[in-house]
Design a protein around this nucleic acid. Structure first.
Lengths: 197, 197
DNA sequence: CAAAACTGAATGAACATTCATTTTTCTAAT
DNA sequence: ATTAGAAAAATGAATGTTCATTCAGTTTTG
């Protein structure tokens, strides 16, 4: 696509409309016509900014994923000790999932749809590297269990997605106490037990 | 719908076709016409067994969910001590998710689609009660942390879904060692730490 | 031969995408 | 500064496809 100086506002409105509609009732409930209407734009205009629906959704995905990782590492310093660094990142991720619900919910919707290409998923993961590096350092120092990063992710980050979705579905409400307990659970699951602490 | 003595074989074939097609590429890729073709049946025949697509999918969901819970509690005895009982259930669930991949994947697909009604979700949860009871008993005995069952689920069962999906996506392969580590992570996250054990 | 089960083709709605025009913005010559 | 007119943006309606569901008729079963 040739670089054009089209209105960035319209592009943003389209992306936000996409997020909002997908959140509301899944990809199923986000036809191009509705997206256009919500963004106050003609359906045909979408195709000036995006190649097609796949392209639109994947672009939104990458944009939101990037917001997510920026947020997660905002006040992380790789020179911090392992446990402190982990807690900072974990709490930022929790914040994002519980406060930026629109964005977090959209990402959760994307996790399971074939609308997102393998390529986009791969790209979306790249910016998570600082967390993987931290874990590796923790393992070298004998603080974090020597297990696959997939396991580390499954037991520390993924539960937050589940809790966020449940909270959004109205099943229950996460308060400060729950969050504290969730952090303890996450850390206990991946840290090397130390009975002499 | 009036009770008819229609062939149970056709009904089963339709359910299996649904699972297979949904797994292959999401609900998006499972049109009634394809489901019918895969079950060697006319599209019109589906409507002799199910009211409509929603009904079909929800019935399959409840059926598979029920298979899942039967499997999970197959050799569980509520009189077992808490930790032993938990380990038995956890390992059965892990087995189901990692060996009965067709069924487990289908359930994961269902977790995020608006095609499944709130009512069906509710019904699907009912048979999980023995696990909730076990957790409650563990909490009374001071063995399991006094935290919300949603947290307990998020940190012990949900990670298995994540790992299953990742394995199915080819991202990595769970071996015996991973499984052992996963169990330790799950138990460590919810059990009351005991430094004198 | 009647009731039940089943069928392929037809119907109509929803949707992504394109197209022929119109509207807006930009440029540069007066 | 103004404005002609070219380029860029935007549009609503049209197109063609896919799909769930229905219907009129056929086949199977008891």
């Amino acid at each position: 696509m040739v670089k054009l100086k089209k209105s960035i506002d319209k592009r943003n409105a389209l992306m936000e409309a996409t997020i909002s509609l997908v959140n509301n009732n899944g990809f199923h409930a986000a036809p191009m016509s509705k997206i256009a209407k919500m963004a106050n734009v003609s359906p045909a205009t979408i195709y000036l900014y995006f190649e097609n629906k796949q392209d639109l959704v994947n672009k939104v995905y990458l944009e939101v994923k990037s917001q997510f990782t920026s947020y997660a590492f905002e006040n992380y310093d790789p020179k911090l000790p392992v446990e402190a660094g982990f807690e900072i990142i974990w709490r930022r991720i929790a914040d994002f999932k519980l406060k930026e619900t629109e964005e977090a919910l959209f990402l959760a919707q994307c996790d399971n749809t074939p609308m997102i290409s393998e390529d986009s998923r791969q790209k979306g993961l790249v910016h998570l590297q600082p967390l993987l590096d931290l874990w590796e350092r923790g393992q070298k120092e004998g603080i974090i269990k020597p297990i696959s990063p997939y396991l580390l992710y499954a037991y520390t980050i993924n539960p937050l997605s589940f809790l966020m979705v449940m909270q959004n579905r109205g099943a229950f409400k996460i308060d400060e106490v729950d969050l504290e307990q969730a952090y303890r659970a996450a850390w206990n699951s991946i840290s090397v037990p130390n009975r002499f602490k």
